[in-house]
Design a protein around this nucleic acid. Structure first.
Lengths: 177, 177
DNA sequence: GGTAAATCGTTTGACTACGAATGATTGCGG
DNA sequence: CCGCAATCATTCGTAGTCAAACGATTTACC
């Protein structure tokens, strides 16, 4: 509560504004396409990664499984997904997207806000890289276990300007195993 | 819907993980200190910027006024704030922090997660700058009015353009007067 | 002065989100 | 084969979040 670095509050407020903006975008989606952000993310993930169990889906979208159930309830209510219990292990529920769901997905807008997606694409690739890496850095700090912040110090600079090779973790950055 | 840039999904997932991490931190706060993140932010803001109207507070913390009402309800229930209608304009409700609220604030932890605050401070200042500017860039894109994304194209490199004032907000970013 | 418009706080409804508790089912050890 | 632990999905309670609708009040205009 004393002696904040100059950037703390700035970054904190930016985070809150981002969360708010994402939320508002979700409602615009809902108004126009009858689907919210998290619902769209679920549908998209189910489309790409085939039938999934509830918990596997939850891990993929970084959401608790109890939250996932509610989202799936609504998607199921609209007939965009199907739930079926596995024969071998009756505890497991496999979720798959329906044809209707595919159709909705085809007509739905980008996952990101158009402005964000378009705006990002308009930026030089190096800046896109810097932004993505900055976010990743913050995620690392936020998700780091309570203790030892120290290791981060040896992680090297965030911007690898020389990087001609430009290896960023391939389209989808894999998460920890 | 077609032709996603490689960074889109990466950035989107990072945003979701950030939101989740912030949410989880709020619950840890609630478990340990009986106060959530948004509640702490309200209390902190009321402490610093004196008595405020509900809508002024909402603007300061970047949250809708309907959300603010709920948060204030809980803070009032715990006796940490007071609401009083103004005599001159009876529509207005002035919110002020109580002595009990001040005491709670004194014992509460930092607004930011320790890990994030500490980790950020440990990074070279140039990286802190890069991170903060990247976030700001995203906020700009997200909060930009629906139409004309175009202007952004002429915005130049991420460093140091920040049109319309509000370039790096000196030590502690002052909120708008 | 009286009506219309604007403003302010609140309420309502829907959705997301979490952890904790629950119920069903499987698998392991004795 | 029997019970206990582990696993999986779900339900429950609380909180945060927004837009839209609402009631009370003030301001503006005629």
């Amino acid at each position: 509560m004393v002696e904040h670095s100059s950037f703390d509050l700035w970054i904190f407020r930016s985070l809150r504004r981002i969360m708010r903006a994402v939320d508002i975008h979700s409602r615009q989606l809902a108004a126009e396409f009858m689907i919210t952000g998290p619902q769209l993310l679920c549908l998209q993930t189910l489309h790409e990664d085939g039938p999934l169990t509830t918990s596997a889906l939850a891990k993929l979208i970084h959401v608790s499984s109890s939250t996932t159930v509610g989202i799936l309830d609504r998607l199921e209510g609209k007939g965009w997904i199907l739930r079926e219990r596995s024969g071998h292990d009756r505890r497991i529920v496999l979720v798959r997207i329906t044809a209707t769901g595919e159709a909705v997905l085809a007509g739905a807008p980008s996952l990101l806000q158009d402005r964000l997606a378009t705006g990002l694409r308009a930026l030089p690739e190096q800046e896109q890289l810097a932004i993505a890496q900055s976010l990743e850095r913050i995620v690392d700090l936020l998700e780091m276990p309570r203790r030892d912040v120290a290791p981060l110090l040896e992680a090297g600079p965030i911007i690898d300007t020389h990087a001609g090779g430009r290896e960023f973790p391939s389209p989808i950055p894999e998460k920890e195993p």
